[in-house]
Nucleic acid binder design. Structure first.
Lengths: 343, 343
DNA sequence: ACGGGCTATGTTAACGTACTCATAACATAA
DNA sequence: TTATGTTATGAGTACGTTAACATAGCCCGT
């Protein structure tokens, strides 16, 4: 019996034409009812709505998008959904997207391997997106040479600036300056650094900020330590420092998780925080996990970042595609893990 | 000068027809090249690819989807991206989706207010999705009466079973039994419960498991305490218990964050963990945040859950839509926050 | 020389929508 | 009565893609 002519419920989804047939009106009238347009007789409207209900009509996203050339969705490409930075990115962008009645088309690339911007762009471009957002948490091999696809807004979330692509990020360099200035004001000079993995862009900039702050004060930076963002790696580093460096008065850990680990290590080594050693972190991410969070840190307004990212990826008419560089400053949160250094 | 005829780069995106014109071939040949089909002369292929590059061709998702009736994307509707449960859901589903070369269309509903399944379904159905996944972390007002949209796979992630919709979740009831059995085996009987907010479905089932386990042993359950999943709320509850209940020998906190807070409170109250009081949690979520995580807990295989959810939302040919109930068991992780109770 | 099978390419149709325009029925004003 | 406007509805079209079919050229064996 092959393909049915089209008026019954075959396996094909129900279209406006099917509804129209059932309600005895034209397809155009169904369209009007579906979109709540005026100039439809009340009785007709009800008849059409009944038919829609009856047949289980679902408006075709493909047809609609093909017709009016917009997808009402923004593409987001990240390497690993669960990493704190990416998670907060999704959250911020989700908020912004919701304000614009926009969905998010999420693609997760390899969790471990680096990926090229060209590859990410190619994949995203074939999806229903009005703009492309790429989270570049580690340097892409083709960052310098990358050209964005013309005709579609592209934003890279990273601290590196690009001549032809708008980049937006929290200011992972400036946060270090905020924290270092706070420590300097308290009187610290011997400030050790526990960083994240060196391939991380955030790490590179947080570390550069630490180093530049020291050099600006003509203090020779000591060897930075490298962790993996986890509390355990912070603990290891803190243990090492407690045993090998009795001149340090402060530790700057590049995220709160490592800072939390470092504090535990210092205390296990018989050092008091903040009396003997001050500790600072970044992200303000401990509140849910640790009772009485006392860590001095920097908080980023991730919703603002999400908004900026979104609005540059999907520019409203007029805001058209100038390439810009946006760095959103963090806010210093002073708690009780920092104090004046011991004499 | 109105609308250009169509052979130059107006504001309209570049279509296969544009590429075809530029390369001097038919549009169908461009399609063949774009999809890597055989039977294209090598010279022609190169000419077409050059034209694509030149014009910045982007395949139209709308056209393609309209044509072949599939979107290669699965819809995911959650209330709050950042909540641990939802985050892990996204992660698990992202993995499964990637294995099927599928994207995720993510919609965040109101973070605070409850939403009806009908509303969520209606919104998701208008998006480019081959299946719909709804995270129901709090009871929807229309759960009982909800009918899924015919013709599109629908899965609700929740512990409640539904007669007409497949539901999948980690076993938030069974995890309580695992933990309680562990505590019973050690010899505990006075086991207090610190739960999450009572509107949470996970909370409802974890708590029911605690209560049923006690009743099965003919132990009268004591009054459960209610937190908000945060370490601080766990601390408050722990403090309260330390001061008001000297007969308890164990605390079951409904997630690790509250358990961590409770442990801190007990220690601040002069009680040792696990010597005086054993503490267990759920989720195994502390590793990144706490050094030397010693909490006995239950870990869920979230990737397995993601796979199950995905594959029931987007059934492969043949697996067609039977309504099933899937509860994925957790795994007991015994660390050092539990011990034999003091005499 | 000619039919049969291959390869490369073109032509047509269909997917579902919403815009533009046309038309019919009807109300109102001159 | 006729001109003019308003409202409800329908017809036609274009959006970009791919499957199915059609065609043209070529090589090969008889």
């Amino acid at each position: 019996m092959a393909r049915r002519p089209s008026n019954d419920t075959g396996s094909r989804p129900v279209s406006m034409a099917d509804v129209a047939r059932a309600a005895g009106v034209s397809q155009q009238t169904v369209s009007r009812v579906a979109n709540g347009l005026p100039n439809v007789n009340e009785q007709t409207r009800q008849r059409v709505q009944a038919a829609m209900q009856e047949l289980g009509f679902r408006p075709s996203y493909a047809g609609r998008s093909l017709r009016d050339g917009r997808y009402h969705s923004v593409g987001l490409c990240v390497n690993d959904v669960t990493k704190f930075g990416n998670l907060t990115m999704i959250d911020g962008i989700a908020s912004a997207a919701r304000e614009h009645s926009c969905a998010i088309t999420l693609v997760e690339m390899s969790k471990t391997e680096e990926f090229s911007l060209a590859e990410a762009t190619r994949r995203m471009a074939a999806l229903p997106v009005d703009g492309i957002i790429i989270g570049m948490s580690r340097m892409a091999p083709d960052f310098e040479t990358f050209d964005p696809l013309p005709g579609i807004g592209t934003v890279i979330v990273t601290m590196y600036a690009h001549p032809r692509v708008t980049t937006v990020d929290s200011d992972h360099y400036g946060c270090s300056l905020l924290l270092m200035d706070h420590l300097f004001e308290l009187g610290h000079e011997q400030i050790r650094y526990i960083g994240g993995p060196s391939f991380s862009v955030d790490e590179q900039f947080r570390r550069a900020g630490w180093q530049d702050a020291l050099e600006r004060k003509h203090i020779e930076p000591t060897e930075p330590l490298e962790g993996d963002w986890s509390a355990n790696s912070g603990y290891e580093a803190g243990r090492y420092l407690a045993e090998h460096d009795r001149t340090m008065t402060a530790i700057y850990a590049a995220n709160d998780q490592m800072a939390n680990g470092a504090i535990a290590a210092l205390r296990d080594s018989g050092l008091r925080v903040p009396e003997d050693v001050s500790v600072v972190g970044v992200d303000d991410s401990l509140d849910d996990f640790v009772a009485h969070n006392e860590l001095t840190t920097v908080r980023f307004d991730l919703h603002q970042r999400g908004r900026e990212v979104f609005e540059h990826a999907v520019p409203e008419a007029g805001t058209a595609g100038k390439t810009v560089v946006i760095r959103i400053p963090g806010q210093l949160i002073i708690r009780h893990s920092t104090a004046i250094p011991r004499s």
